[in-house]
Design a protein around this nucleic acid. Structure first.
Lengths: 333, 333
DNA sequence: TAGTCGCGTACAAGTGAAGGA
DNA sequence: TTCCTTCACTTGTACGCGACT
């Protein structure tokens, strides 16, 4: 025997032998199915504990046609995905499902991540902010239910659960305009999931208030925000800025402050996501919050509805955002 | 047939039937094993493509005694774990292994995360900065090889791959002293993984330079750093500060700058992790870098060595850090 | 005559060794 | 030797059935 591996991992048969029962009965006990006496249950359980038996998830799932497994593809870079994962675990557990995770990394594309989940026999897939082309997603959806979270997809094949990003921008603009701002620039997220909706929402809201939209290229990282800030400083500084997300907003804040501008004194700033960083006392960023609990709950429920063949009227579930006002917004001076 | 689920997922038998061969031969083709003619391979592959066959990972692993699966427990909150995951995927792939991920969330403890991996028949476990008590880890290690990353564990049972955090602090102090600093405060990480080593390294290095150590309670978040900065501002400001990690350092920087102190003019600051945030142009924080590539490569290699029964001389693999000097450190004035 | 409890055994979807042409 | 098939086997689940109260 090597230093670590005991001869063999104990199986149900070992438990059964030790308890002096058949494997079938041991199986019944292990999964709390009806059909065993209390005394036997006791005995089998003790035997299992003694030899450190753990049911083999694979063998178990192999036999039963349902895996009760939901595959989740997430990006290791995105802090927000971490929050979503937490919510998904809760929602899945509630429904008696497990999660199979597969990460997208710089060296491992979405395709690969999905492939591995398919081999794992997941019943449904939840994709967090996927970047695959719509056709790909639609193709995938012919195999199994696919729920896309935090990105909108123009396809009748996949379900989408997302935040009403346009409404989020409306909230931001309404807030700024109510404070008295007339010159609000939007720092864009480019092709990031949700960026198009936020941009559109910004444009709509600005026009609705009779103002002139002005969109600056940005991105999803602090550096993108920093670059946008430099652009702003080089030209005419608006009285307020809405930013694609919090990370980008933080980079923008940093550069503005280093340049001697005060926030919200000289400029008001609104972020998006209400991420942990926005809540920091030293950042304290006004931000549009996505309802993680609803997003994840809906995503899981929708996946299960599809599996159960429950008729679904609308393919897209849109969760309402809310504005969290903190100290980076104030009336212009 | 319901809207989504086709009658049944295609199996190897379906492929074999369609290609007119035995399942065993189809199996050979699907896993690129020797023993099939090119023509047959072609035919089987086409059949598989046509019916959209995907091998069932569970059945496959059930049959072969080895799962070629490494379980990884990570925290959804830790950005650094994301980097590690990316490295682990690469290292595992290199070795012909797959990763099974299990996340620790606010609602899902380490125990649960580990349990699910055990049921998945992982051959070894890699735990990223685990918080379980040592006894727990040791107990786990009696079942299968356990490699702890980024935390040191006082147990002969588990392997550890970590950065030489004490050396990292030596590098930081050497750098600061070389710049001419004599009064360096350390903002501590409390009970976070690695905090004790960093604190110790700081104390050693300070004494070695004939200076007086001064440790301030801190933590791992920006807020903790902000609080520490306020403490510093309320008392006597040192000429330099070393901080447990970058996040904490950023919080500290923010508060110092908001209070009108310049960095590195009034105070030099050194962070730890060389995280993305440290590299931001607007932060540009001098920081101790952990070598993610080495950490992850070593972690996987060590796990596999254990599995293969390769004799291992030292239980702890310590990776050397390096100091990345940026613009938050300068000679005192 | 019912129930309850427990057993034998046919699977699930693959793999690998032995053997035939 | 090459290519292919047959058959035993992995772990656990589910069904039909018999044996007891």
């Amino acid at each position: 025997m090597t230093s670590t591996s005991p001869d063999r991992r104990p199986t149900l048969a070992d438990v059964a032998a030790r308890a002096g029962v058949s494997t079938a009965l041991a199986s019944i006990v292990m999964r709390d199915a009806p059909g065993a006496s209390t005394a036997t249950r006791e005995r089998v359980r003790r035997a299992a504990d003694e030899i450190g038996y753990r049911p083999d998830a694979r063998a178990r799932l192999l036999r039963s046609s349902r895996s009760r497994l939901i595959g989740v593809v997430f990006g290791v870079q995105h802090a927000f995905h971490g929050d979503l994962l937490a919510g998904l675990y809760d929602a899945a557990e509630e429904a008696g499902y497990e999660l199979a995770l597969s990460a997208v990394t710089p060296g491992r594309g979405e395709q690969r991540a999905v492939e591995s989940l398919l081999r794992d026999r997941c019943e449904a897939l939840v994709l967090l902010g996927p970047s695959s082309p719509t056709a790909h997603l639609a193709d995938l959806a012919t195999r199994l239910p696919v729920v896309v979270v935090a990105r909108s997809v123009r396809s009748a094949a996949v379900d989408v659960v997302r935040t009403a990003d346009d409404e989020g921008m409306h909230l931001a603009l309404d807030h700024l305009v109510a404070l008295g701002h007339h010159d609000v620039v939007h720092v864009d997220g480019g092709r990031a999931p949700g960026a198009a909706e936020r941009r559109r929402g910004y444009r709509e809201a600005v026009r609705r208030h009779g103002l002139v939209p002005r969109v600056l290229p940005g991105g999803l990282t602090e550096d993108d925000g920093a670059a946008a800030a430099r652009t702003l400083l080089a030209g005419s500084l608006p009285s307020a800025v809405t930013v694609f997300n919090d990370r980008c907003a933080v980079g923008l804040l940093d550069v503005l402050r280093l340049a001697g501008r005060t926030v919200p004194g000289d400029v008001s700033v609104v972020g998006y996501d209400d991420s942990r960083i926005a809540r920091l006392s030293s950042v304290d960023l006004t931000s549009v919050a996505q309802d993680v609990g609803q997003l994840t709950e809906f995503a899981v429920r929708r996946a299960l509805d599809r599996l159960d063949g429950v008729p679904v009227e609308q393919r897209e579930l849109v969760v309402r955002p809310r504005l969290v006002v903190r100290s980076t917004t104030a009336p212009p001076r």
